[in-house]
C-alpha cells in the first residue's frame, strides 16, 4: 500500500466522497452542512460535487432526521445523518433507541435499517456541560445498534466506508480533538471491518484498552512507561458494540493486567462495561484487579483548567499503571 499522511478530518471527508460517488443510494443530511465547510468541516465539498438533493441541509429537527433516515433506509436508500453534537442524543433518543435500533428485531429480521449516524463527542474546546460529553455508554446499552469510535485517520476512513456499506444501523462517534490528528492513510481503497479491535502498540506487562481520543493518551503513557521498563500493550476496540472480546482477552492472558480508559463518566460508563466483560473472561489470569480510568462523575465544566481535570489524561493512566505494576498482585 502506498501511504501518505492526512488528517482524521480529511480521512472522513474522503470516505464520504468515495462512498457517495460509488453508490447513488447514499445521501447525507444534517444541520449547516450546505454552505462552505459545514459545521465540523467533514462534509466540505460534498454539496458542490453531489448537489443539494443528496447533500441536504436540514432544519434543527434531530428526531425527524434520524427517523427520516430510517424511513429512507427501509425503502432502499443508505442515508448518513450528521448529528452536530452527541449531546443532542437526548432530543432524538426515541428514534435512535426505539425505532432505528429495534426495527430489525421487531420485524423478525425483515427490515434493513442501513444507515449511519455520524456525530462527535468529547472535551477540548471549552464548550461546557452540554456540548462536550462522551455518551457512548448510552448507546452500547441498546441492542441492535452498532457503535463505532475511530481513533486514527486510518480507522476513521476505513470504518466509515464500511459503516456506509453495512446493512446495520451504525452510530459513528468522532472526537473533536481528533479532527486535526494526522496519520498514514493508504492511497488505495480499503475497508476496516466492524467488530474487530486493533492492537495499537504491542506490550507484555499490562494491557491498556482505550477508546477514541484517549488512545492518544494511552500511547503517550506507553512510551513513558517503556522508559521505566514497563511494556504496555494498547488496544483500541474501535467498534464499541459489539466488542471484540477475544482480542482483548488474548492480550490479558499474556500481560495479566488490564486498565480500561474512556472519556465518559465513571459510573455506569463504557469502561465499566469493558472491565466487567473481561473480568468474566480472564479473571484467573489476572495478577491485579482490573482498573478503570474514566471521567469524574460531574458535568463538564466550562473553565478550561477544570475541563482538563474532569477527563482522564496521560498522567492518570500512568498513575494507575504504575500502582498496578508496582503492587505485588492482589
Amino acid at each position: 500500500m502506498s501511504m501518505r499522511e492526512i488528517s482524521y478530518l480529511q480521512a472522513l471527508n474522503e470516505a464520504l466522497h468515495e462512498e457517495m460517488a460509488r453508490d447513488m443510494d447514499v445521501f447525507i443530511m444534517g444541520e449547516d452542512i450546505g454552505l462552505g465547510k459545514g459545521t465540523l468541516g467533514v462534509t466540505e465539498g460534498l454539496r458542490h460535487e453531489f448537489g443539494p438533493e443528496r447533500v441536504r441541509n436540514t432544519p434543527i429537527s434531530e428526531q425527524a432526521l434520524v427517523g427520516a433516515a430510517l424511513g429512507a433506509a427501509l425503502t432502499g436508500c443508505r442515508p448518513i445523518v450528521e448529528l452536530m453534537f452527541i449531546d443532542l442524543l437526548g432530543v432524538c433518543m426515541d428514534q435512535v433507541a426505539n425505532q432505528v435500533a429495534k426495527v430489525t428485531y421487531m420485524s423478525g429480521g425483515k427490515a434493513r435499517p442501513a444507515l449511519v449516524i455520524r456525530t462527535q463527542e468529547g472535551v477540548g474546546l471549552g464548550l461546557a456541560a452540554q456540548h462536550s460529553q462522551s455518551l457512548e455508554a448510552w448507546l452500547v446499552h441498546i441492542p441492535g445498534l452498532i457503535v463505532v469510535a475511530p481513533s486514527t485517520p486510518f480507522d476513521a476512513k476505513g470504518l466509515l466506508k464500511t459503516a456506509v456499506r453495512d446493512d446495520n444501523p451504525v452510530f459513528f462517534i468522532e472526537h473533536k480533538l481528533l479532527y486535526s490528528l494526522k496519520g498514514p492513510v493508504p492511497e488505495e481503497e480499503y475497508l476496516v471491518p466492524l467488530g474487530v479491535a486493533d492492537i495499537k502498540r504491542k506490550g507484555r506487562d499490562v494491557t491498556i484498552v482505550a477508546t477514541s481520543h484517549q488512545v492518544q493518551y494511552a500511547l503517550a503513557a506507553a512510551t513513558t512507561l517503556a522508559l521505566e521498563g514497563t511494556e504496555a500493550e494498547v488496544i483500541d476496540p474501535r467498534t464499541l458494540n459489539p466488542l471484540d472480546v477475544e482480542t482483548i482477552a488474548e492480550s490479558v492472558r499474556r500481560t495479566h493486567r488490564l486498565v480500561v480508559v474512556n472519556e465518559g463518566c465513571r459510573t455506569g460508563g463504557y469502561a465499566s462495561e469493558v472491565a466487567a466483560t473481561l473480568g468474566e473472561h480472564v479473571f484467573e489470569y489476572l495478577d491485579a484487579p482490573i482498573m478503570r480510568v474514566a471521567a469524574k462523575d460531574a458535568p463538564i465544566p466550562a473553565n478550561l483548567q477544570l475541563e482538563r481535570e474532569v477527563v482522564p489524561k496521560e498522567e492518570d493512566i500512568l498513575t494507575t499503571v504504575r500502582q498496578m505494576v508496582g503492587s505485588s498482585g492482589w
Binding site: 493508504p186 475497508l191 492492537i199 511494556e231 500493550e233
Partner: peptide, 14 residues
C-alpha cells in the same frame, strides 16, 4: 479483498 484490519503497530516489546 478490500479488508485491512490494521495499518501500523507502534514500536514496543511484545
Amino acid at each position: 479483498d478490500l479488508e485491512r484490519v490494521s495499518y501500523i503497530v507502534e514500536e514496543g516489546v511484545g
